[in-house]
């Protein structure tokens, strides 16, 4: 199994896992922003009624993003392990084949065949598992990407509601809106980079 160019596939798999770990950390920032938004909307009182309604959505976005990115990260780690195991088995298979070539006239050559067959079978199973994990993870990333588009809408609506909340809280509420937008952007960047890396794994 080869990548289109550059690093071996198990390096890309490990890089995807690392990228998605970073996304998980950023998702926690949205969670913190959601708590701040709730507290601030309460303090702002009647003037921030519109914003208060939005905090529910920010909260939900935070919950979904943290859960999804954690699950995706954990799947990415499993995929990375499968990739390393596949590479090891592929290397073993190569060495068994070289041994068979070298031993072509040796008395007990056929005694290698069961081990060769087992290794070939293991390699096939691992390859299939790896491909399946890559496709599943790719789907989950697309789903997360779609989910994060909500954050852009939420940030825009938050800015509108912030300006309607009165001067005292407008600036703080705008900061909340900005934090949501920035965190979503950061996660999107990690997701897009992971998707690009998947593109390099020739499956």
């Amino acid at each position: 199994m080869k990548t289109q160019k550059g690093n071996p596939y198990f390096v890309y798999a490990a890089t995807v896992a690392a990228e998605l770990h970073k996304a998980t950390l950023v998702a926690r920032e949205i969670s913190l922003t959601a708590s701040n938004a709730r507290a601030l909307a309460l303090r702002a009182g009647h003037g921030a009624a519109g914003f208060r309604a939005l905090t529910e959505f920010i909260d939900e976005l935070a919950r979904k993003t943290v859960a999804a990115s954690s699950e995706i990260n954990s799947e990415a780690i499993k995929m990375s392990r499968t990739a390393s195991e596949t590479a090891r088995t592929e290397s073993a298979l190569k060495r068994f084949k070289i041994a068979c070539d070298k031993a072509s006239e040796h008395q007990y050559l056929t005694s290698i065949y069961p081990a060769l067959k087992r290794t070939e079978d293991d390699f096939k199973v691992l390859q299939e598992r790896f491909h399946k994990q890559v496709y599943q993870l790719s789907d989950r990333l697309n789903e997360l990407g779609r989910e994060l588009r909500t954050a852009t809408v939420l940030a825009a609506m938050s800015r509108v509601e912030a300006s309607a909340s009165g001067k005292e809280f407008e600036e703080s509420l705008n900061v909340i809106a900005l934090n949501v937008a920035q965190a979503a952007d950061k996660i999107q960047t990690h997701v897009k980079y992971s998707q690009q890396l998947f593109g390099k794994i020739a499956v």
Binding site: K102, A103, H106
Partner: peptide, 9 residues
């Protein structure tokens, strides 16, 4: 590889 080949000799 070389060892395995020689062992099965």
């Amino acid at each position: 590889s070389a060892m395995l080949a020689n062992v099965v000799k």
